[in-house]
Amino acid sequence: MRIIVNEESVECSSALSVSALLTQLQLLRPGMALALNQQILPRAQWDEQLLQDGDAILLFQVIAGG
């Protein structure tokens, strides 16, 4: 299965959750936010959201300020 992570193609096994993929790629860090197919995916859903072939993930660092 092919997933796009930050505009780079990644081959992975099927039935992989978002958090499992990020752990496998060593990208799971505090303060990260994620968009799956251009929709923000709440972190509480990362463990249960299964990826599909062709999905696109965009990771970004959350920055707070005033």
Rank of each mutant, 00 (worst) to 15 (best):
I57E: 08
M1K: 03
M1C: 01
V62S: 04
Q38V: 03
R43S: 09
S19G: 08
S19P: 03
P30F: 10
V18E: 00
E8D: 12
D55V: 02
M1V: 06
S9Y: 07
Q61S: 12
A35T: 09
E8Y: 09
E8W: 09
Q24F: 01
A20E: 15
D47I: 01
D47M: 02
R43H: 08
V18W: 00
I63N: 05
S17I: 06
A44M: 02
D55S: 09
R29Y: 03
R2D: 14
Q39N: 13
C12K: 03
A35W: 02
L58D: 02
L36H: 03
A64D: 01
Q38N: 11
V62D: 06
A44S: 15
I40N: 03
I3T: 09
V18I: 11
L50F: 06
G65L: 08
G31Q: 08
G31I: 01
S19K: 08
N37G: 02
I4A: 12
P30M: 03
Q61V: 14
T23R: 14
Q61I: 10
R29V: 10
I57Q: 07
Q45W: 10
N6P: 09
R29P: 02
I3H: 05
Q61M: 10
G54P: 10
L41I: 08
L51T: 11
L28W: 07
I4V: 14
N37Y: 01
W46Y: 04
A44K: 12
L22S: 07
M32K: 06
S9E: 14
L25D: 02
V10P: 07
L22A: 08
C12W: 01
L36Y: 01
M32R: 08
A44D: 10
W46F: 10
M32H: 04
A44E: 15
Q45A: 14
L51K: 05
A64L: 04
L51V: 11
E7D: 15
